[in-house]
């Protein structure tokens, strides 16, 4: 593990940096924002590239379709809003004008998960993975920290196609390093207790911090465990997972996400088990058909059973 002092930062900050860095290299990157330039961290892009930034006002449906038109003119548009509104409110525009049209628009969905905190359930997107992964042509990525968000953002621009990036509001521990190799076709192991792993925990997004603490706690209690960071949700790197499970001797998969248990990462893995005839047992941990509410991140994680202690207990109970 990294021994240096723990650095914390919201993943959305990494998105903002990645956008600017990509835009310096790729002059056809344009940015659109729906009145949330500061909190979606599009401010830096707007300041450095004022001619390539379009403020569309509080109009997320329009933003998605305008971006499609810009893409049709040869640009790579990046649109940013809170995920509740984009893709929450503008799903059909994303389906028809971006995915059906196959236009390379990058959708940055901010303020996902319970870690939005005090804004409450209306603003905590817990359904966005389901909304986006069901769409043909759409790629879905979900960085676990700001460093990975920067790297993924640059890769999305380098490989233009309809894409969704899931981002979080609150500052969280940095789990990866800039020197880590990142690509769009593999996920990454954040922790392993030994060369074998009876249990593989697969987490997506910044809840990986809690999952890592849980993995360490389980290891201390004698469970052989690995933690896979699912930064790429679609197309899911299936062969990598199959290889890891064979190599580690995995008997149990646990998914951890700040998303509804239905339709998100847990569903992805359940579908893979069914489609491939895998024998592993599966525990899906997420929000169980409920809306969020106001509170601190710590209070909410605890209330919804996503904090490190709850994760540890649930996994221990499942493996018996």
């Amino acid at each position: 593990m990294n021994e240096s002092p723990i650095k914390k930062e919201p993943s959305r900050h990494g998105f903002g940096r990645g956008l600017v860095e990509a835009a310096r290299i790729h002059h056809n990157v344009v940015g659109l924002c729906a009145d949330l330039t500061e909190s979606t961290r599009m401010k830096e892009f707007k300041e450095e590239f004022p001619d390539r930034f379009f403020e569309v006002g509080v109009a997320e449906q329009n933003m998605a379709a305008v971006a499609s038109g810009l893409a049709a003119s040869g640009f790579i548009p990046v649109i940013a809003s809170y995920a509740m509104f984009s893709p929450g409110r503008n799903w059909e525009q994303i389906r028809t004008t971006i995915c059906y049209n196959n236009q390379p628009v990058i959708i940055a969905g901010h303020h996902t998960g319970l870690s939005v905190g005090s804004d409450g359930g209306s603003h905590q997107a817990l359904e966005d993975i389901a909304l986006m992964r069901v769409l043909p042509n759409m790629r879905v990525v979900s960085p676990c920290d700001s460093v990975e968000a920067t790297q993924l953002m640059k890769l999305l621009v380098q490989n233009p196609k309809p894409s969704y990036m899931r981002l979080a509001r609150s500052e969280t521990e940095i789990l990866t390093q800039q020197s880590d190799a990142v690509d769009l076709s593999s996920n990454t192991i954040l922790y392993q207790s030994s060369n074998t792993a009876e249990v593989v925990i697969i987490s997506t997004g910044v809840i990986g911090v809690e999952a890592r603490y849980a993995a360490q706690a389980l290891a201390q209690q004698g469970v052989s465990v690995a933690l896979l960071n699912a930064r790429i949700l679609k197309p899911f790197p299936v062969e990598q997972l199959r290889f890891l499970m064979e190599q580690f001797g995995v008997t149990t998969i646990v998914t951890v996400e700040e998303h509804q248990r239905n339709g998100g990462l847990g569903s992805i893995i359940a579908e893979l088990i069914a489609d491939n005839g895998w024998s592993q047992k599966l525990l899906r941990i997420g929000v169980d058909d409920q809306f969020g509410q106001s509170g601190t991140v710590e209070e909410l994680y605890k209330a919804y059973g996503l904090d490190r202690d709850s994760l540890t207990e649930k996994i221990k109970g499942f493996i018996g």
């Binding site: 344009v30 001619d51 449906q61 329009n62 305008v66 499609s68 049209n101």
Partner: peptide, 25 residues
Amino acid sequence: IETSSGPLGCGISQGVGMALGLQLQ
């Protein structure tokens, strides 16, 4: 065919995007 259509109400949006793009170019 410049864009797929059918679901109503988003043609103007896409036209705006194209017009903005053409101006930029």
